[in-house]
């Protein structure tokens, strides 16, 4: 075993709710029962906490469980998914213990979510201004004209040109970028304490994405809102997030402050992901082993072992713990990557 690992301690910041945490997830496990066979485990004993005002980037490929995690936090798992264990604490309250109606009151008000395919997220039969106003009125106990006013203000805040006219526009009359702004306005109208963005910019053109990200960051920073930014594009996290977490097969495999993560990625999977973005075949060959079949979460041992170029015998039998290898930098690996300093 490496000396770093021997010296490492389990950090309470990860395992329990930090005092400044807006959201703390502990030991969360989610599975999808499959008829006639073993359930598919989508999230496995996941610990994560997000501080007030922090933007955390959650990077993973399709099937890694990142969307399941987002929906589990919201209490809106798609059928037949179910939470097997763990807790989700938001602002000191246990979300899992809450009845559905109480959760409805929190969703959209305290925790908001932004999703991709913005035009599909909006009701095609209702004007966008009315849709924003409806969210405001559902949560803020205000009169109709007040909520309309607020909706118009939000349209201005997300910099939609000609907001008065757009208020009465229907979703199909908007471009993709504009619709994404409307969805942002909807999610921000109640000034939530926490926003989950699930691949929200993935369908947009790069120049539009750049505008949306700038806007989102400004709005989030000015309201001291915390955010979990889920994405497939590790490039965005480099410029947009305070911390980066990498999720693989339903487990956080690496978590670090952004700059540190890109300077010194330690999990072989993180390194492999970065190499894929570098389009460097020599690097990829070094870090990547082609995989024959899909890996399911919840295997004994390290789920990355079959794809890992570093794999040792111990990896197949022991599930590594998430350990703090340098301050604030957590890695779930028995043989992490080391670099000469």
């Amino acid at each position: 075993m490496h000396p770093e690992i021997a010296a490492a301690t389990r950090d309470p910041a990860v395992l329990s709710a930090r005092s400044d945490a807006i959201l703390a997830i502990r030991g969360l496990s989610v599975s999808y029962p499959v008829y006639g066979t073993e359930a598919v485990r989508a999230i496995r004993e996941l610990d994560l906490s997000i501080a007030r005002g922090e933007i955390l980037g959650l990077v993973g490929e399709s099937g890694s469980g990142k969307t399941t995690l987002a929906r589990a936090i919201m209490g809106l798992l798609a059928r037949p998914g179910r939470i097997d264990a763990g807790s989700v604490t938001f602002d000191g309250r246990d979300l899992r213990a809450m009845p559905e109606d109480a959760l409805r009151a929190i969703r959209g008000k305290d925790i908001a979510m932004v999703i991709p395919n913005p035009r599909g997220e909006l009701d095609p039969l209702v004007t966008v201004g009315r849709q924003i106003a409806t969210v405001a009125r559902a949560h803020l106990d205000i009169a109709r004209d007040k909520s309309d006013e607020l909706a118009l203000e939000m349209l201005k805040a997300v910099q939609i040109p000609d907001p008065k006219r757009r208020f009465n526009a229907y979703p199909h009359e908007l471009s993709g970028g504009m619709a994404q702004r409307v969805v942002m306005a909807m999610s921000l109208v109640c000034s939530p304490k926490f926003i989950i963005s699930d691949d929200a910019t993935s369908g947009l053109d790069v120049t539009v994405q750049a505008q949306i990200l700038d806007l989102l960051r400004n709005l989030v920073r000015s309201h001291q809102t915390a955010m979990m930014f889920i994405t497939r594009d590790i490039g965005i996290t480099a410029h947009f997030c305070d911390r980066v977490a990498v999720i693989y097969a339903g487990e956080i495999v690496e978590l670090a402050p952004t700059v540190r993560f890109f300077e010194n990625p330690m999990h072989p999977y993180s390194v492999m992901l970065l190499a894929a973005f570098a389009h460097n075949p020599r690097l990829r060959e070094k870090w990547h082993k082609p995989l024959a079949s899909q890996i399911r979460a919840g295997t004994t041992g390290c789920p990355y072992a079959p794809r890992c170029v570093h794999v040792e015998d111990q990896c197949r039998g022991t599930r590594p713990a998430l350990l703090e290898l340098e301050p604030g930098h957590f890695v779930r690996c028995l043989v992490p990557v080391v670099r000469p300093t």
Binding site: R107, G108, I115, L122, D123, P124, L125, V135, A138, V183
Partner: peptide, 24 residues
């Protein structure tokens, strides 16, 4: 559909959600 799921995500009351789905 996505927009009804999103209406749930925004915490709109059940009655509003059902009304929207019915209208569509």
């Amino acid at each position: 559909s996505d927009f009804i799921r999103y209406a749930d995500t925004c915490g709109l009351p059940r009655s509003v959600v059902i009304r929207r789905a019915l209208r569509n």
